[in-house]
Amino acid sequence: MRTKHTQAYAYVHASAVRESASGRSLALKTSGGATPGGEQANPRFFDGFLTAPTAAATALLAVADVAATRYYRPGSAASLDPVVTGCAWGRSPAAGVYARLDVLAAGLDGDGPAGYATHWLIAERLDGDPKQAHAVADALLVLAAQGQLDPELFAAQTQAVLRRDWSTSTRAVTVLRVAAETGARATIWSILRPALPPLLRPAPINGAGALLALAAECAAHSGAKGPIPEVDEVAARKGSSQIVENARLLRDGLRS
Rank of each mutant, 00 (worst) to 15 (best):
A77E: 10
E124A: 15
Y9C: 04
Y71H: 13
N206T: 15
T58M: 05
V175I: 00
A172S: 10
A59T: 03
A64G: 12
T30R: 03
P202S: 07
I188G: 09
K238T: 14
A145Y: 04
L192V: 09
A21W: 01
A56N: 06
D232L: 10
G112V: 12
A78Y: 00
G96F: 07
P227S: 09
G90N: 05
P198V: 11
V103I: 15
D111A: 13
G207A: 11
A62G: 15
Q159V: 14
G86N: 11
F49V: 11
S240Q: 12
L254F: 10
V244Q: 01
G38V: 09
G110F: 07
A16C: 08
H134F: 08
Y98P: 00
V17Q: 02
Q146N: 13
S241Y: 10
D111Y: 05
S79W: 01
A186S: 02
A14H: 12
L211H: 02
D127N: 10
I205H: 06
R255V: 00
H5M: 08
R91F: 02
F154E: 09
Q132A: 15
N246P: 00
I243N: 12
L176R: 01
G110Q: 04
G128R: 08
R201Q: 13
S25N: 03
G128I: 11
A236L: 06
Q146C: 02
